[in-house]
Computed example of a mutant assay.
Amino acid sequence: MARLEVPRPATFVTLTGFMGVGKSRIGRELSRALMLHFIDLDRYIERRTGVSIPDIFRHLGEEAFRRMEREAVRELAGKDYLVLSLGGGTFVDPENRKVLLERGPVVALWASPETILERTLRKPGERPLLQVEDPLERIRALLEARTPVYREAHVHASTDHRKVEEVVAEIVEKLWTHAKATRP
C-alpha cells in the first residue's frame, strides 16, 4: 500500500525551553496540526524506567537522570514523524543539543519568570529543581544561564498570555519559513 504524503514543513520537530513554558501542551497540539506522533521525553523516561522523574532525582540523582535522558534522545532522534517535547534541561546538554539541532528544526518556547512560576506552582512536587526557598529567584537564575543555549534553536515563540492555538499557528508558519530557507 502506498504511503500518503501529507504536506508538512518537517517530519521531526523538537520543542525546548524552560520548565513551565508549555512544551507538553503545545507539543501535543503541534503534533496534531502536523499529523505527527507526540512524545514527551520525561513521560517516555518514566514509562521506560517505571519511576517518576522526581523519584529518579531523589533516589538516583540528577546525573543518572541526565544519562537516561541522553540515551532516550539518541534513540528518539532516529525516529521519524515525531514531535518531541524535551525537559527544561535536556537541550542544555551539548551532546543532546548537537544531535537535535542536526536532526531537524528545534523550536524554543519562551515565557516570563513570573508566568513560569505561576504555571509550575500548579504541580510543585513534579519540579525537583524548584524545591528551594525562593523558587522565582531560582527560575530567574536558571533561565539566565540557559538562555544562550535556548537561543540556538531554529525557531522561537513566546507562550506568555497566549492561547495554545495561536502559538501553534505561529510555530507552523515559522517551520514552513525555516523549511523553505533550508531545503535545497
Rank of each mutant, 00 (worst) to 15 (best):
S24L: 05
L60C: 11
E137N: 06
I116G: 06
R74D: 10
R48V: 07
E69R: 09
L130K: 00
V172N: 01
R70Y: 06
I171K: 05
G87H: 09
V149Y: 10
L117G: 07
G17C: 06
E133C: 04
E173Q: 11
F38T: 13
R103I: 01
F38A: 09
P9M: 03
V13P: 11
G78L: 07
H154A: 09
A2T: 12
E102L: 10
R140C: 11
E69N: 09
A10Y: 00
A141K: 14
E126V: 10
K79Y: 08
R122A: 15
R122K: 14
A153K: 01
L100E: 02
L101Q: 04
I39C: 10
P135E: 15
L60F: 12
L175S: 04
S112C: 04
I56H: 08
E29G: 07
V106S: 02
R183F: 05
R58T: 14
R47N: 13
I171R: 05
E95W: 14
V6M: 12
V107D: 00
T147D: 05
E170S: 05
L100T: 06
G125P: 00
T11D: 14
A108D: 00
A157D: 00
R138M: 01
G27R: 12
R48A: 13
Y44L: 08
G17F: 07
A111M: 03
K180Q: 12
D134C: 01
A181R: 15
S52K: 14
T90R: 00
R3L: 10
L142C: 05
R25F: 11
E95N: 12
I53D: 02
G125S: 11
R162C: 03
T147E: 13
K98H: 13
R74L: 14
T49H: 10
K180V: 05
I171P: 10
L86R: 06
E29Y: 13
R119L: 11
R162E: 12
F18E: 09
L121I: 08
I171S: 02
R119P: 00
T147A: 15
L82S: 04
P94L: 08
P148D: 01
R43S: 13
R103M: 01
D134I: 08
T147Y: 10
K163R: 15
T49F: 08
T147C: 01
K174P: 05
T14H: 03
M1G: 15
I56A: 09
R58V: 09
A179C: 08
V92H: 06
E102F: 03
L76T: 12
L4E: 10
R3G: 07
F38S: 11
E29Q: 15
V21G: 07
F91I: 09
E62L: 03
W110G: 04
